[in-house]
Design a protein around this nucleic acid. Structure first.
Lengths: 200, 200
DNA sequence: ATACAAACGGAATGAAGCTTCCGGTTCACT
DNA sequence: AGTGAACCGGAAGCTTCATTCCGTTTGTAT
């Protein structure tokens, strides 16, 4: 609904020390719980894990949605950090960087259900956050463009394909229990599918 | 929890005509609503769509879970019918049959959120239903085996890979709004990824 | 036609989870 | 070391659903 703005830094009102500490604990607790259980965790559980009362939680964040958005913002920022780290690796070919990132995003999603859900979900804010995370789209574009330039992937590869492959893999990973250990197979299939078409 | 058994046919107590009619209306309404909105639809809405009161719904099905299970059983049966239809097409190569089925399963999942969720979900019964649907696994095995025998796919292709590809694609399709129309690209990538490895 | 077991509808119940409220506590500035 | 704004905890309020209950209606077998 409202415009999305970073709510962490702007000291519109420099929080009291204890309040600031609690704010961070709440975000950390939410992050951890949601990584494990997904977005359906209860406010009460987050408060408890953070070692504060629900009242405190609601003093810091107007409602559930606001808390989740702020938390996601952090997770996306970490994702971009990973992505940038991969882009800088000049010891790898562009294709190897691409594969490395896709694999890394699989591992991250395997560890963090909440992030996977966010990556997949369109509903309202999530998509807006992803797109507004500085550097996310740009870095993916670069990842794709460099591999295309190198000629080691299909020539029409776009950044959206990277997102799509990652989301699809993340989905399988999160449902791994039904077909244990098999997401590596899908990864192999998809990476093979990214190869350049036959020269003809 | 309990053993899964077909609850439709066994006339353990031949339903009264109106009751039977209502039972079918309820299943149809649930099927339609869940195809559109996913598993989170409300019992009241299902009852309303079926043109009955909630009380009636609960006379027919002990609880929400039971209704959903029965409905899924029907959906899986339809999926097997599609699969069998494809397997019979002798005008196609084995590889073409494989591609046709994967594409068909994409379209079905695009049309039916509930089925997609069921295909992906492990939680309890769903997986059991899928595995216990007569012919589902067997048909997929045959689909894979024939393509392997023909040499038109990677030689280690297994039926689980077909499920995985379908689920992964279904996931992307259901979240199409974020990257409109792009699931066809992932389909192309995955199908290419199924090609046999380089002869060497 | 009559009777009654079975079925019907939908208001009432209860559980679960988000959010608010308020009396008591704590920081931070003089 | 005093004071008040800001903060804290968690009980209570509210909403949303699944599920139950019960007085009324309907199919079907005599």
């Amino acid at each position: 609904m409202a415009t999305i703005e970073t709510a962490t830094k702007p000291d519109c009102a420099p929080l009291r020390a204890d309040a600031q500490r609690n704010r961070e604990r709440i975000l950390a607790a939410a992050s951890k719980l949601i990584a494990i259980h997904g977005n359906e965790v209860e406010m009460t559980d987050i408060a408890e894990a953070a070692g504060v009362g629900v009242g405190t939680l609601y003093r810091r964040f107007p409602d559930r949605e606001a808390l989740l958005i702020e938390m996601l913002r952090e997770k996306f920022a970490e994702l971009v950090a990973t992505l940038r780290g991969v882009l800088e690796r000049e010891d790898l070919t562009a294709r190897e960087r691409l594969d490395t990132f896709i694999r890394a995003s699989c591992e991250i999603q395997g560890r963090d259900l909440g992030l996977h859900e966010a990556l997949s979900t369109v509903t309202g804010e999530h998509q807006a956050i992803a797109r507004s995370t500085p550097g996310l789209v740009e870095s993916m574009e670069r990842l794709a463009a460099e591999a295309v330039a190198e000629g080691s992937v299909r020539s029409d590869l776009a950044w959206e394909d990277i997102v799509m492959c990652s989301c699809a893999l993340g989905h399988v990973i999160q449902h791994e229990d039904s077909l244990p250990g098999s997401w590596e197979r899908l990864l192999a299939i998809q990476l093979a599918g990214l190869n350049p078409g036959p020269p003809g």
